[in-house]
Computed example of a mutant assay.
Amino acid sequence: MKCPFCGASETTVADTRVNEDGDIVRRRRRCLACDKRFSTYERAEIRLPQVVKKNGSRADFSREKLSASLWLALRKRPVTVEAVDAAIARIEEKLLAQGEREIPSEKIGEMVMRELKKIDKVAYVRFASVYRNFEDVDEFSDLVREVTRPVAERGRS
């Protein structure tokens, strides 16, 4: 670690402490050249993949955008904040587990639809109708029928 005071590269660690949550490490360091002390902080860097949009442009993954999309579909529905936070966490975990540097926005949309289907069927239909860009009422009706069919029947089709 380079000393911020004199620029020397030789330092020693005098003390190491982990914060309460266990996700940040604070190290107290001493420069061997100028004998000054300074602190450094370490935290794991988790890089979610870049989102490749339909037009080919790329954007950083945004938890805020994901949350806003879910809440828009869930507007005025009896769903808890905890349920939405858990859905977002599951989507982020899946994205991290894939280990890809880029992911098409369509894949994220499919993940959102799977999570909404588990949380609230009305929100799922709302999101799917916009996401899939239905051209006519028949497509919408098919989706509603699929959601309202008993689970045993869904496996047969």
Score class of each variant (00 low, 15 high):
residue 21 D to H: 08
residue 22 G to I: 03
residue 24 I to V: 15
residue 25 V to R: 10
residue 25 V to A: 11
residue 26 R to K: 13
residue 27 R to K: 12
residue 28 R to Y: 03
residue 28 R to K: 15
residue 29 R to Q: 04
residue 29 R to G: 02
residue 29 R to N: 01
residue 29 R to M: 03
residue 32 L to H: 12
residue 36 K to I: 03
residue 36 K to C: 05
residue 36 K to V: 06
residue 36 K to M: 09
residue 37 R to H: 09
residue 38 F to N: 08
residue 40 T to D: 09
residue 41 Y to N: 11
residue 42 E to P: 06
residue 43 R to T: 13
residue 43 R to E: 15
residue 45 E to K: 11
residue 45 E to A: 15
residue 47 R to A: 12
residue 47 R to I: 14
residue 47 R to D: 09
residue 48 L to W: 02
residue 50 Q to V: 12
residue 52 V to W: 11
residue 53 K to D: 04
residue 54 K to S: 09
residue 59 A to R: 13
residue 60 D to A: 14
residue 60 D to E: 14
residue 61 F to Y: 09
residue 69 S to P: 03
residue 69 S to L: 14
residue 70 L to S: 03
residue 73 A to V: 10
residue 75 R to F: 04
residue 76 K to V: 00
residue 77 R to F: 05
residue 77 R to S: 07
residue 77 R to C: 04
residue 78 P to L: 02
residue 78 P to M: 00
residue 79 V to C: 04
residue 80 T to W: 00
residue 81 V to Q: 13
residue 82 E to Y: 09
residue 84 V to E: 03
residue 84 V to C: 00
residue 85 D to L: 08
residue 86 A to R: 12
residue 89 A to K: 12
residue 91 I to F: 00
residue 91 I to K: 03
residue 93 E to D: 14
residue 94 K to Q: 13
residue 94 K to I: 02
residue 97 A to F: 01
residue 97 A to Q: 10
residue 99 G to H: 02
residue 100 E to H: 11
residue 101 R to M: 07
residue 103 I to K: 06
residue 103 I to A: 05
residue 109 G to C: 04
residue 109 G to E: 01
residue 111 M to T: 02
residue 112 V to D: 01
residue 114 R to L: 11
residue 115 E to P: 08
residue 115 E to Q: 15
residue 116 L to P: 06
residue 117 K to Q: 15
residue 117 K to W: 01
residue 120 D to N: 10
residue 120 D to V: 09
residue 121 K to R: 08
residue 122 V to D: 00
residue 123 A to Q: 04
residue 123 A to S: 07
residue 123 A to H: 01
residue 124 Y to K: 11
residue 124 Y to R: 06
residue 125 V to R: 01
residue 129 S to Q: 07
residue 130 V to A: 14
residue 131 Y to M: 04
residue 131 Y to F: 15
residue 132 R to W: 01
residue 132 R to T: 02
residue 133 N to P: 00
residue 134 F to D: 10
residue 135 E to W: 12
residue 136 D to M: 13
residue 136 D to R: 13
residue 138 D to L: 11
residue 139 E to Q: 15
residue 139 E to M: 12
residue 140 F to K: 03
residue 140 F to I: 13
residue 141 S to E: 12
residue 141 S to C: 09
residue 142 D to H: 11
residue 142 D to G: 13
residue 144 V to S: 05
residue 144 V to C: 07
residue 144 V to E: 04
residue 145 R to F: 07
residue 147 V to T: 09
residue 148 T to I: 06
residue 149 R to D: 15
residue 150 P to R: 14
residue 150 P to E: 13
residue 150 P to A: 05
